[in-house]
Design a protein around this nucleic acid. Structure first.
Length: 886
RNA sequence: UGGCACGUAGCUCAGUGGUAGAGCGCCGCCUUGACACGGCGGAGGCCGGCAGUUCAAUCCUGCCCGUGCCAACCA
């Protein structure tokens, strides 16, 4: 039996460096983890034994940000915890490289523009543009060449991100990587499109769509934001047809006057009741437009009567549709006023010559210039207002109002009729809400963000973008005998042919020569909204539609970590996709990290210039220090990037290094835990394990860290270690059994604490673990060691009372205070003292008294029963210190 | 304007229906044998404001103030 006893291994602490070299250790362990496949997902194990993470793919064109450290650490802490629980963790990494940010970056970096008609160059020779080159016209390159450049840039970006993530110690399985533009993702995205098309969830339609005039692409509701901008009410007089008087409308967009197609007021508004059914005549352009009632008109706003234009806002679109109004599109795709001819069927006018003269003044101008110009025209007293005089009734009245912008855009969105592809979502709001209920949100209140967004949905999902770098929409359209496309006759690529590029591949049954020929076909040149691909990250990882077995093991995922501002996009669209494809939820839990605020508690953003780059912080405070700061923050809580907290993390690692050195440096006696103090310590340890585990199960990693940290400092290094150290070193004259008990308990404490810390500060944990425990326990990495359980402690006898530990600490502290009050060092020997307490308290001290006296270097003591001392505390009397040694 | 959070020591943050907590910072002391990248001790709070529920409120309820985020038909 004796030979079965665990063999303790001790170390020679003098062979360890004086200080922990974190930078060196970070490199060494990263290599060790990588080469040892410590974080590899095992595809042979069943779903029940797995923990699947839907890692957020960072936008690689963005800069490295301290926020990346923050949120990715939250995920990694959980991943390491689950792995130590024996689960087969699937922790992939994706790179979000398609979309506008990359295009913009490539345009700036190489000083190029994509021109789909430019000739393709087999070998594109181009270098990053110099400052001088940037002043000249950008070079035009073909779409394939442009994409090539995009890929060149993103590969570099991905390396920077991987470097940071490795340094940070993210336990990612680097074999599971994808990029949203790679072949695999194009395939999954296009199959998603085909599946949705076959299920009838898609349609394409030529309709007014939110349009960014700079990027020249359609934009989805989720990508819009409102900004408060100064504007002005312009009061403009309209005549009523047949010399039937006039009225004054108020508008912030006078430049749309030529696009006026109607006038409306509230049906009950007495001022305008009599006008309904008649025509108004627009000033300057003399276009007759119908006056109709609408509940949507607010009598309180402006003058209570307003002009409907194609298109000033969403309500205009609604009126235009419901009233069957004319379409007089004015704003072109580039944001300027297009040439139009008054007197035509489209733009009728009572005085076409005058109208065209006026319009010539504003045609071709941008919105702002046109507005200024038309205001001047409206001041013209001969412009023919109904009552004579200028149509503009008063000076423009400045107001602040909300204007919709593309979130990445600089100019307000316009509504431009274009043909776009949509996913039908408006008719599925209640199903989407139900799916949101099935997902568990952490913290819980984040669910309301999803609910609010889903309830407030007001448009289907526009998924087509008129850009170049992205996943092509895999469709072609048949051309009739005149060469006009039939958008109802959609040729969707077959699943087996995907991925395809319709601008270079021909649809099945056609030859390339038939491209853009009458009776032939034309390829869709639009690409997908980047979210169309990003919303498939769970399926991209699981190989949906490609590998049913793998898909079954990885879908739905367990957790989706993400930040709260993209609940309306990433979380929402991912839930929508999982629902539409398989009537599933994509993951069981959504784990939301907060934002990083700068030390002044402002949100960090590039525009504010207060962004912290992570590498210098990691170099200064170590990866463990940075992780400590991240993990200290609860989920969903915005957190200041406070260097003080980084520092505490670094200090914690140092302390672990030193405590490990001491504990493992003791001669390794194998003895059961048997003294009262040791057993009481182990009992406390049991409580810690239970609390830390419960906190993790509750998705409260910060609590688990805080519990462990407090225990480590307060109960381990500051108390137990000090109280047990003399006995452990054999200096207290105890027998080998008592000495061995102390060593065994110290080792147990270190062992458990290291494992509890491992998810948070993996480098120092691995380092100390490697000194002895790795060989002792036959587990080379702490990150594959078992998460501590109270069952491990079941073989250890319980103390007479767990309170013994606190009694010993209280007494010890009281003696320390006596030393502090006398301004002697903590190490000073005490020749004699009297410990006074009430009888019961004194009795409780008895089993641990030896350790207390040894730790405080008391040579002689007297115990005195004194009922006047507060129960549970000790009074030190007649303390005589030994003389200070020379 | 509506929804959701947040407001606790100088700073960063925990926390509980019953005497208010940690770390950092500050002050004093201690060259101690794992660690001076330490240790011990100390000062420091109308727990945003006002009401209500309760024997008892920092905690529960309501209102208000302040901060942040998300949304809201641009006339």
């Amino acid at each position: 039996m004796g030979t079965d006893k665990p063999q303790f291994r001790s170390i020679d602490p003098t062979r360890l460096p004086k200080h922990f070299d974190a930078a060196e250790a970070e490199q060494r362990w990263d290599r060790f983890w990588d080469e040892g496949g410590i974080f590899a997902w095992d595809p042979t194990r069943p779903r029940e034994e797995s923990f699947v993470i839907d890692t957020p793919p960072p936008t690689v064109s963005g800069s490295l940000h301290i926020g990346h450290v923050f949120s990715y650490t939250h995920t990694d802490v959980l991943a390491r915890y689950k792995r130590m629980q024996g689960l087969n963790v699937f922790y992939p990494m994706g790179w979000d490289d398609n979309g506008l940010p990359t295009e913009r970056r490539v345009q700036n970096y190489f000083h190029v523009r994509c021109d789909p008609h430019a000739p393709f160059e087999e070998v594109l020779e181009i270098e990053p543009a110099s400052a001088k080159q940037r002043k000249s016209h950008p070079r035009l390159v073909s779409r394939p060449n442009f994409i090539e450049l995009c890929e060149r840039v993103t590969v570099e970006d991905e390396k920077a991100f991987e470097g940071l993530f490795r340094r940070l110690g993210l336990s990612i399985d680097w074999r599971q990587q994808y990029a949203t533009i790679d072949r695999h993702c194009r395939l999954i995205s296009q199959r998603s499109f085909r599946d949705l098309y076959e299920k009838g969830h898609l349609y394409n339609r030529d309709a007014p769509t939110a349009w960014d005039v700079d990027f020249q692409t359609a934009v989805a509701q989720a990508e819009m934001e409102e900004r408060s901008k100064p504007g002005a009410f312009h009061h403009i007089e309209f005549a009523v047809e047949g010399d039937a008087g006039s009225f004054v409308i108020a508008t912030t967009r006078p430049e749309l006057l030529p696009a006026c197609v109607g006038v409306t007021a509230h049906p009950d508004d007495p001022r305008y009741k009599g006008l309904f059914g008649k025509n108004a005549i627009t000033p300057l352009f003399r276009v007759p437009v119908p006056i109709f009632p609408s509940e949507l008109a607010d009598p309180e706003k402006g003058t209570g009567i307003l002009m409907v234009c194609t298109f000033g806002d969403q309500t205009d679109v609604q009126w235009w549709r419901e009233e069957g109004l004319a379409l007089r599109q004015l704003i072109g795709r580039n944001g300027t006023l297009m040439p139009v001819a008054f007197g035509s069927d489209e733009f009728p006018s009572a005085d076409a010559d005058a109208a065209n003269r006026y319009y010539a003044e504003i045609a071709g101008k941008g919105v702002n210039q046109a507005r200024k110009a038309i205001v001047e025209l409206l001041r013209d007293p001969d412009a023919g207002a109904a009552g004579g005089g200028a149509p503009l009734q008063s000076e423009p009245e400045p107001i602040e109002h909300n204007v919709k912008f593309y979130e990445k855009g600089d100019r307000p969105l316009e509504l431009v009729p274009t043909r776009q592809w949509f996913v039908r979502l408006l008719d599925k709001q209640s199903e989407l809400l139900a799916k949101g209920e099935q997902v568990q949100w952490h913290p819980k209140f984040m669910h309301s963000r999803y609910r609010d967004w889903t309830e407030g949905l007001n448009a289907d999902w526009c998924i087509s973008r008129q850009r170049y770098f992205g996943v092509p929409i895999p469709v072609w359209y048949r051309l009739d005998e005149h060469g006009a496309p039939d958008y109802d006759d959609v040729l969707v690529a077959e699943a087996e042919r995907m991925p395809v590029d319709p601008t270079t591949d021909a649809p099945t049954g056609f030859e390339e020569e038939q491209r853009d020929q009458p009776g032939g076909f034309t390829g869709e040149s639009d690409i997908f909204d980047t979210w169309f691909t990003s919303s498939l990250t769970p399926q991209i990882g699981s190989y949906w539609s490609l590998d049913a077995e793998r898909h079954g093991k990885l879908f739905p995922a367990d957790i989706r970590p993400q930040s709260h501002e993209i609940i309306r996009t990433w979380a929402f669209y991912t839930i929508a996709k999982a629902m539409l494809h398989e009537d599933e939820i994509p993951w069981k839990h959504v784990v939301i990290s907060g934002w990083v605020l700068d030390p002044d508690r402002k949100k960090m953003s590039k525009s504010q210039g207060n962004v912290l780059t992570p590498m210098p912080l990691i170099e200064k405070f170590t990866a463990d220090g940075a992780r400590y700061w991240s993990a200290s923050a609860r989920l969903g809580t915005d957190t200041a990037a406070d260097e003080k907290v980084f520092k505490v993390g670094k200090r914690l690692a140092t302390k672990l290094f030193n405590a490990g050195k001491f504990v493992l440096g003791q001669e390794a006696f194998v003895h059961p835990v048997q003294t009262e103090l040791d057993r009481a310590f182990v009992a406390k340890l049991r409580g810690l394990i239970e609390r830390a585990t419960a906190s993790f199960e509750d998705f409260n990693h910060a609590q688990a860290l805080s519990e462990t940290e407090t225990f480590f400092w307060t109960h381990f290094t500051d108390s137990y270690l000090e109280l047990a150290k003399t006995r452990a070193r054999g200096e207290a004259g105890d027998g080998e059994a008592e000495r061995g008990s102390a060593v065994a308990s110290l080792r147990l404490g270190l062992d458990v604490l290291l494992r509890l810390f491992a998810p948070f500060i993996p480098y120092i944990s691995e380092e100390v673990w490697s000194w002895a425990f790795a060989a002792e326990k036959g587990e080379s990495s702490i990150h594959r060691a078992a998460w501590p359980s109270s069952a491990e402690l079941d073989g250890i006898d319980v103390p007479t009372t767990e309170a013994s530990f606190d009694v010993a600490v209280t007494c010890w502290n009281a003696i320390n205070k006596a030393k502090a009050d006398s301004e002697v060092s903590m190490g000073r020997e005490v020749e004699a003292l009297t410990i006074a307490a009430d009888a019961e308290t004194l009795a409780g001290l008895e089993p641990v008294l030896g350790d207390v006296l040894a730790a405080t270097r008391c040579r002689a003591h007297t115990l005195a029963v004194d009922a006047s001392v507060e129960t549970g505390s000790f009074a030190m009397r007649d303390v005589r210190f030994a003389p200070k040694p020379d």
